[in-house]
Amino acid sequence: MINIYLLLFIQFFKIGVFSFGGGYATLPFLYEIAEKFHWYSISQLTDMLAVASLTPGPVGVNMATYAGFTTSGIVGALSATFAVMLPSFIIVSIVFKILHRFKSNLYIQRVVKALKPAGCALLSAVGIKLVFTANLHLIGTLILIVFLISGFIKKRDPIFYLGVSAIIGLIIGNLHWIGV
């Protein structure tokens, strides 16, 4: 059996190499890990995403640290966090040296242009999958729709949605409308 630290390292190194688009770009990969390795469940992933939005630092780092820590403690956390950063370190260092050629290269421009919709599609797919796996019930689905409409009309701080949904969850849960 492969050492768990090595496995964590490989999986998070892969995220560092293949995630494009910033912010939630690591999410499709984290979702895949949840399905494949069960280091955390899908519902733990959304919990963690909420926590990551409320704690300092990039979401990708938060998730790497969390996944590493829950699977194999502090060494696992270090291993996964280091692994997710390492590709960035190598790639940025190379690009830094060839900055001007990098920017003017037509092939690179075209690849970047192709990667953006791909990243957007991957994130859309995770969103759709989450709607079906998150055990939202009818009431949760309705709240989601209201949130989305309100978000499309007016841009708000992420804390707004997390705060309001936390309060709604607390109320609905205590009224026993849902069986969580």
Binding site: T46, A50, G127, A134, A166, I172, V180
Partner: peptide, 9 residues
């Protein structure tokens, strides 16, 4: 449970 909805949003 509630925050999950916020996250998907």
């Amino acid at each position: 449970w509630g925050v999950g909805i916020g996250v998907i949003t």
